[in-house]
Amino acid sequence: MRIITGMPGQYIPSDYLPILIFMMIATAFGLGTLVVCSIFRPRRTYAEKLTPYESGNPPIGEPRMRFSVKFYIIAMLFVVFDVEVVFLYPWAVVFDKIGLFAYVEMMLFIFILLVGYIYAWKKDAFTWD
């Protein structure tokens, strides 16, 4: 929250103040519903009710099991490509003002990225089996 007190007695709110208030209201709404609800709802639990759902059978083994390494590869690829998208945004905003130089630079950037993309494709990072 940025408060500018340039002139005495004048208050200019930041553009982001409404977002902060909105976030507070959203959180309060979520928590408030749960709190109000906890007053009204019944509470009749027993041990069987509190077991994890597994189609009626007693659960076997550890639920947090080992999972495919593919998920890690997807996560790493996401980091690489999402950073690229973030680089494209400021370029797109000032595209009109900076002209040909930035255009060539960015095409070069996308080309280099494309090389990496093709490498990942050839290494079967995108195939799921």
Binding site: P52, E54, R64, M65, F71, I74, A75, F81, V85
Partner: peptide
């Protein structure tokens, strides 16, 4: 729970893939 765990994994991988 196994179902919830698998669902969460799948969902997060899907959401981050399509976010790009």
């Amino acid at each position: 729970s196994k179902y919830a765990f698998l669902g969460g994994l799948r969902s997060s991988a899907q959401v981050i893939s399509y976010e790009i």
